[in-house]
Nucleic acid binder design. Sequence first.
DNA 1: TCAAAAGTGTTTAGAGTACACCCATGG
DNA 2: CCATGGGTGTACTCTAAACACTTTTGA
Lengths: 224, 224
Amino acid sequence: MTLNTVAVTVDLVLLTIRSSELHVLLIRRAIPPFEGHWALPGGFVLPDEDLDDAAARELHEEAGLRPGHFEQLATYGTPGRDPRGRVITVAYLALLPDQPVPVAGSDAAAASWLPVTPGPALAFDHARILADGLERASAKLEYTPLATAFCPPEFTIGQVREVYEIVWGTRLDPANFHRKVTGVPGFLIPTGGRSAGTGGRPAALYRAGPATRLHPAILREHAA
Amino acid sequence: MTLNTVAVTVDLVLLTIRSSELHVLLIRRAIPPFEGHWALPGGFVLPDEDLDDAAARELHEEAGLRPGHFEQLATYGTPGRDPRGRVITVAYLALLPDQPVPVAGSDAAAASWLPVTPGPALAFDHARILADGLERASAKLEYTPLATAFCPPEFTIGQVREVYEIVWGTRLDPANFHRKVTGVPGFLIPTGGRSAGTGGRPAALYRAGPATRLHPAILREHAA
DNA sequence: TCAAAAGTGTTTAGAGTACACCCATGG
DNA sequence: CCATGGGTGTACTCTAAACACTTTTGA
């Protein structure tokens, strides 16, 4: 790779919730630059490949599972961000339910779910990309049904509430939260089933509804 | 430009409000492909240029004026979107007050402000990019002080209200709107001046405040 | 004097909050 | 029986919508 040649990569900010903490999928780099550092998973876009397809391919290679949500995040192209040459990176944000992770034989690198806080030092400008992804996810919880992307196909309202509490770092009143989310048209659809074995009254099960935006929104307390 | 080589461009969605209508800056292409079609202004990223800098440079070349707001929109890289080869386009969104436009000698092309609706057929996938920009601007009016980006340095609350009404295509109650926006901390700062010559009671003048998000938000009526 | 735009007051309805209270399960 | 989480009821507060009304200019 020489100067005046531009390489395009896709990098993934892959988030999930494990044991009541937000985790991000990171890869320990086996080769320079940043050998031994943690980095976001990603790779080069193939010559005749769509950006979204490239990101989906990387997602499948690295995590091997279907995301609950998948969107383009932003593009990073500051000269010098990669010491090997001019690299433009299109970052994607994906949210997944906590599944047993079949992180299989990818590019000779160990992939792990790590808690986002405090989080290790990251290679390249990946700390900034991760921060942008976290902010995007946090903001979108308010006015989109993004929280269900962290949940399995069927889930309880308590699980949804836990997503909000973990991502926002706040406590929410269970009673009022219940009324609020069940009052948003198209957000949650009752399946008729009930949860079991949680050491309390069984909760009704829901699946994600067709809504793409929440009205009314689930608003966060914003520090003034 | 051959296959397997990727070119990176920046394109601009430049919006302003003229005579109570939302306008976008378009360029009539003088050369193939899409000769004679309207297109978003843009150009290639220089070998050692940051993406944001490239967009700012294009903005200055095409419009020659300072935007009230400027942000990256999204990146488009579907193979075949440009018949000349593989082109990745990083789109930027910029909002400007209605200034006398010194669209000077740019790339042998005529630049014009055109109403966004109905709007002409656009080259490449620029219709989609424009639509994405409009949606972004429309959504961000709710929870950011973006509306002031369409206004001159000093403006009245009536002007701000007109921005909301035009972008959203709705009517807003002047009395309630006044109370709402003046009640958002950091949104508007009174300059002490007064407007004149509008055929009514002079309005107090304001400038944009330091807030980056509006709390409480200026919420739109969302059709259910 | 009239029209037009700015801004304030007031009433009323709806949404959000706090929290008491009952329900259904596991241990 | 008790602990735990699910869910409803209810009173209170706060915001927002609707609209009457006053203010201040240009014509």
